[in-house]
Write a protein that binds this DNA or RNA. Structure first.
Lengths: 260, 260
DNA sequence: ATAAACTATCACGCAGCGTCAGAGTCAAGA
DNA sequence: TCTTGACTCTGACGCTGCGTGATAGTTTAT
């Protein structure tokens, strides 16, 4: 016979947890004294350990209750289902990281670009070194490709690239009057698309997200607004059109291949 | 001027969400009528879109408030930090999936093994085919390696392997009296370790988890308890000792390499 | 007998809203 | 002008899995 405290120490959980499991009917004491004290036995301990096992792999308490209470429960199928949800969570988190990465890249790369100052005036040498270090420390060598790539350029090259990027936006502003679907804008967006390769491999999904980001993200919005008040909205629309065209052509190519 | 409904439709959020953001001071209406209706302007819309941007990448509302309210906020550092937490979540989920995988493998492979029946008496032919199919459907071809491996064996080979595994546990029971740290048990665990390779590559981490699983997991515990009531506890201890030894030797080898 | 250690039952808090409930407000048609 | 119907407001509970008191009774050790 174990009291709540004893059992909690044996299993490494809090007393409150045992109370709670009693409340929701997940683990009832084997005996309740007339002082309403809870007493548990070895069967309780085993069941508690089973509960903790399932809890550790991320199952919800209700699901655990079902599994443990129904002896005919198909555990394998349940675990396979659970595996799927875990997978989906991972995939979602990975796309989130992608987005965060491109956001960071652009924050580092394009903030204040509109002022025709280079990035180096904004960041001191130490700051820059620090970024490199953090990139390696925190990000390992997998996902920090883009930042490494950027820092692999020489200083003059960096300056040149930044200048080039700024020019593109200035030219876009000069051609805004011709419409987001004009050939001039399209040509500029092709240059913009190419330019992104200095930083990372721009997939279609990334491009689409970028348009929205330029408009919705505070820092980008501020940056582009300084170039021209209508630029964020214009870019969002123009990029959407451009991406749409890319996707269409991609589909056609796929279909073409299939026909052969 | 937008009413709550209008803004909610424009931004794709619920009215309740706007109420809530007002409550916590994240997005105040630009004007409140004397009927206490909320009215928003374009600045509100922009801010809302910024909020949604950060929300999508998984930031908490409090963090978003800080970022948006403090113009000097170091967005880059905040995002880098956030990236880290996302990474950690992914890593945690991946180990969870590992555990789930080995659990499933063992559930399929070892349930009822103690009855000296082969696995095939427990599962009908259709059931077995179904498992294969589900393995491919749900798991893709990456993580189902182990199950594929298993199903790649011929039926006689399967039966032989199962028999072999069962024998190991029976022998362990016969030697339980000599202690979990006895050379006899150690030798048997080496066989057990080798035997696992029929199913998947047993890393040190997996081995450690297995010992606990044999004890804590309901189905395994039941299975091993049927062989001998003390077997789950004994296995847990013996495997812990074995794994500990493996790790020590691994460390020594690493240190030896470093010395050269 | 008295103090220390345990025990019990409420009940709020958290994160981010969803979801009624009850009541007031506004715009448009008959 | 009156009546709908569409909106709006402010509470307030629910969800998940407990943590963290508060207050009060019980047991154990000295």
């Amino acid at each position: 016979m174990y009291t709540v405290k004893k059992l909690s120490e044996l299993a490494g959980v809090s007393v409150r947890t045992l109370h709670y499991y009693d409340d929701i009917g997940l683990l009832k004491p084997s005996l309740v004294g007339e002082n309403s004290y809870r007493y548990y036995d070895d069967a309780s301990l085993l069941r508690l350990q089973q509960i903790l096992f399932y809890r550790e792999i991320g199952l919800e308490l209700r699901g655990i209750k079902e599994i443990l209470d129904d002896p005919d429960f198909d555990t394998v199928t349940a675990l396979q289902l659970h595996r799927r949800t875990l997978q989906e969570k991972i995939e979602r988190l990975q796309t989130l990281i992608q987005t965060v990465d491109t956001t960071i890249m652009h924050l580092i790369g394009e903030i204040d670009m509109s002022n025709k100052k280079t990035i180096f005036e904004g960041f001191s040498e130490e700051k820059q070194k620090q970024y490199e270090k953090e990139a390696v420390d925190h990000w390992g060598d997998n996902a920090s490709q883009s930042i490494k790539l950027w820092h692999s350029y020489s200083d003059e090259r960096k300056a040149q690239i930044m200048q080039e990027g700024g020019d593109i936006y200035v030219e876009i502003v000069a051609n805004m009057g011709k419409g987001a679907d004009s050939p001039e804008i399209r040509a500029l967006l092709v240059r913009w698309h190419q330019h992104l390769r200095y930083f990372y491999e721009p997939t279609i999904e990334v491009l689409g997200g970028l348009g929205n980001m330029y408009h919705d993200h505070p820092d980008f919005n501020a940056t582009f607004t300084r170039i021209h008040p209508d630029l964020p909205v214009f870019l969002k629309e123009a990029i959407a059109i451009y991406v749409d065209e890319l996707e269409t052509r991609w589909l056609e190519r796929e279909l073409g291949i299939l026909e052969e």
